[in-house]
C-alpha cells in the first residue's frame, strides 16, 4: 500500500496528475526522444568518457591504463610543446579578436549606408564566410608564397628589397594566419554589427544634429555606446572561435615552422591521431575547455564596466 502510494506520488509529480497530463508528458518525451538519444550518446556519454580518458593512458588499440593525474601534471610541468601551443593560441586570440571586431564594424558601417544596391555589397562581403576554410587556406598559401605570391610581389613593387617569407618564417607565420582568419570571418561579424546598427533609432542622430554634434561625436557618443552589447557578443564569439583555430594552421603551415603556429587544438590532434596518446589528448582538451570557459566568464564579469544597457 505504501509502496503503491509512493509510486503513484512519484508518477503524479513527474508525469502529472490526470491521465490527460500524463499522455501529454508521454508525447512530449516521445518527440524529444531522438534528440535526447543523440544528446546522451554524443554529448553526455562522450563528455563522461573524455573525462575518464583524461586519467588514462591509451593508444586506441591496447588495454588502457589508469594513470591518475599524471596527464595533467605532465601537461603543466613537463611539456614545453604544450606551453608553446598555449602561447601561440593566446597570440592568435589577441591578434584576431580586437582587429577583427574593428574591421567588421567598419564594414558594417559601410554597408549600412542608405544607397541603392547596398545589399550587393553585403552579399559580396559575406562570400568569404561561406568559403570552406580549406580553400581559404590554400588561397592564402598562394598569396603568401615568398617567391611567386601576390603579396610579396606587390611589396617589392613598392620598393621593399627585403620581403618577409611569411609562412616559412617563424616571425611572420603567426601574423599571416591571423590576417587570414580575420579576412575569412569579417563578413560574419559584419552582419551581426549591421543588425545592431539598424536597430539604433534615427531620431537619436536627428536630435544630435540639431544640437550641433559632428559626425564623429555622433559616432562616439551614440553609435558606439549603443553597439556595446553587440561588441560584447562579438568579442565573446570571436574569442571562443580563435581559441579553436586549427584548420588554417593545419593547411597553411602544418603548425610550422618550428612549431610557431601549432595551436592547442592542433596539439590535441597530433597527440590523439598522430601519436595515439588518447588519454593525453583528452586531458589537453579539458584544459582547453577550462581556459575557454574561464575566459568567457571573465568577459561576462567585466562587461558591466564597459557595456551600455538601456
Amino acid at each position: 500500500m505504501i509502496v503503491t502510494n509512493f509510486f503513484q506520488g512519484l508518477r503524479n509529480s513527474l508525469f502529472g496528475k490526470t491521465p490527460t497530463q500524463r499522455r501529454e508528458t508521454r508525447t512530449a518525451w516521445l518527440f524529444l526522444a531522438p534528440n535526447l538519444l543523440g544528446f546522451m550518446l554524443f554529448t553526455v556519454f562522450a563528455v563522461g568518457m573524455a573525462f575518464w580518458l583524461s586519467f588514462q593512458e591509451w593508444d586506441l588499440f591496447n588495454q588502457s591504463n589508469p594513470v591518475g593525474l599524471a596527464n595533467y601534471i605532465r601537461l603543466f610541468t613537463g611539456d614545453p610543446d604544450f606551453m608553446r601551443a598555449l602561447y601561440n593560441t593566446v597570440y592568435f586570440v589577441i591578434g584576431v579578436v580586437p582587429v577583427g571586431a574593428v574591421l567588421s564594424l567598419i564594414l558594417a558601417l559601410l554597408v549600412n549606408q542608405k544607397i541603392k544596391g547596398v545589399s550587393l555589397f553585403r552579399t559580396a562581403l559575406y562570400v568569404p564566410v561561406v568559403t570552406p576554410t580549406i580553400a581559404v587556406g590554400l588561397i592564402w598559401v598562394w598569396l603568401y608564397n615568398s617567391d611567386f605570391g601576390l603579396i610579396n610581389s606587390f611589396l617589392s613593387q613598392l620598393g621593399f628589397s627585403q620581403t618577409p617569407n611569411w609562412l616559412t618564417s617563424s616571425t611572420w607565420s603567426k601574423p599571416a594566419i591571423v590576417l587570414t582568419n580575420i579576412w575569412q570571418n569579417a563578413g560574419y561579424y559584419m552582419v551581426i554589427y549591421l543588425a545592431a546598427l539598424q536597430n539604433i533609432p534615427d531620431q537619436l542622430y536627428e536630435a544630435a544634429k540639431i544640437d550641433g554634434a559632428t559626425r564623429w561625436q555622433q559616432f562616439s557618443r551614440i553609435t558606439l555606446p549603443l553597439l556595446s552589447p553587440t561588441t560584447f557578443l562579438v568579442f565573446v564569439m570571436k574569442t571562443m572561435g580563435a581559441f579553436k583555430i586549427f584548420e588554417a594552421a593545419y593547411i597553411m603551415t602544418e603548425g610550422g615552422p618550428g612549431g610557431s603556429t601549432e595551436t592547442i587544438v592542433y596539439y590535441i590532434y597530433k597527440n590523439g591521431f598522430e601519436w595515439f596518446r588518447m588519454g593525453y589528448a583528452a586531458a589537453i582538451a579539458w584544459v582547453l575547455f577550462a581556459i575557454i570557459f574561464l575566459c568567457t566568464l571573465f568577459q561576462f564579469k567585466i562587461q558591466k564596466t564597459w557595456v551600455y544597457y538601456e
Binding site: T25, F31, L32, F42, A46, A50, F243, K244, V265, W286
Partner: peptide, 27 residues
C-alpha cells in the same frame, strides 16, 4: 509540450553548445 523539468532539460541541451568538439571527438 508541457511536462515537468522541460526548461531544465532544455538548458542541459543548450549546454552542449558550450562544449567544444575537441573534448568529445576522441570518444
Amino acid at each position: 509540450g508541457s511536462f515537468k523539468g522541460k526548461n531544465v532539460l532544455f538548458l542541459l541541451v543548450l549546454g552542449a553548445l558550450m562544449i567544444p568538439i575537441q573534448v568529445t571527438f576522441v570518444p
